[in-house]
Simulated assay, not measured.
Amino acid sequence: LMRSRDPQEVVRQAQQLVDAGYMEIVLTGIHTGGYGEDLKDYNLAQLLRDIENNVKGLKRLRISSIEASQLSDEVIDVLRDSKIVVRHLHIPIQSGSDTVLKRMRRKYTMEFFENRLDRLRVALPDLAITSDVIVGFPGETEEEFMETFNFIRDQKFSELHVFPYSKRTGTPAARMENQVDEDVKNERVHRLITLNDQLAVEYASRFEGEVLEIIPEEAYKLDSAANMVEGYTDNYLKVVIPGSEDLIGKLVRVKITKAGYPYNEGQFVRVLDEVAELV
């Protein structure tokens, strides 16, 4: 049974967080996209609008994860028109093969998934789409795996979380015949990780030379000698810039100097402070 938190309560908590200095809020839950299904005449699209209209000072609103089936035209319109909802969605695909999805008992087809992605890209051309993929589900053939591989490649996801299928006792899938051999599974995982690295760099390189905004979250630790911080752009590019730790938690304009993965290099442009923006 799904339970949606009271919308006014969500707005109130969001305002408290902003008042405490947070610039970005992530909406998260078990079925974030299904928010409001148990409320009368209320849904995720309305919650997004209410947060934007009523929470003063919020810079960014991110949805942690949403199922393709819950990306209604109304939600897409809100994303398109919003000034604060970021250009990034995490949409779990699980598999890019209709026959595997059927065995997984997923309720959508790839045609439907593709239709939602097409709609999103028209609304938000620069959208970063990240996803979860399960490799080696019982019975997955090389052909079915390639359907997944090709779909992800053609749709240009910006980052993937790749999981090998693992047997969970008591699940219908664990009792299925033709479990996929571990070696085959690992080899497929590696092919998708290689694809992920290519796609991530390809997406990031579209923004090389552009000025974007990050909220530095922590000092960048790999090079202890250097004074560097890292944070994410609204479209989920991790950017490392030279700068001291007093930049952490601020909204900072940065120029992407070198696209890469898992992070991009950037240079500090300026801190966006409220006073300057009002002038």
Rank of each mutant, 00 (worst) to 15 (best):
P262Y: 05
N43G: 07
Q267Y: 01
N186I: 05
D197R: 00
D154V: 03
E202R: 06
R270D: 15
S72P: 10
V184A: 03
Y232G: 10
K185E: 04
R5E: 06
R12F: 04
V11T: 14
V78C: 13
V180C: 06
E230A: 11
K59R: 13
E144F: 03
P172I: 00
L79V: 14
F268G: 06
L272P: 14
E37M: 05
R62T: 14
L101I: 13
H31C: 11
G34K: 12
K185V: 02
A225E: 15
L124W: 11
S72G: 01
I91H: 07
K156V: 07
N227V: 10
D118M: 12
E52F: 02
R119S: 10
D234L: 00
I241M: 05
D126W: 09
P125H: 10
S224Y: 11
E24G: 11
I25W: 04
E213P: 02
F113M: 02
F207C: 02
T32L: 08
M110T: 09
H161E: 01
H90W: 06
Y22W: 03
K167N: 02
I152C: 04
D234T: 10
S69W: 00
R5I: 04
K107T: 14
Y232C: 03
K56G: 06
E182Y: 02
T233P: 08
V133S: 00
R270G: 07
M104L: 08
Q13R: 15
R121Q: 10
F149L: 07
V85P: 10
Y203D: 11
K83A: 15
D154C: 00
A173S: 09
L27I: 02
D273A: 00
L61K: 14
S65L: 01
A68S: 12
G33Q: 00
M104P: 07
D273F: 07
M146F: 08
I84L: 03
E74H: 04
N115C: 11
G260A: 00
H88C: 12
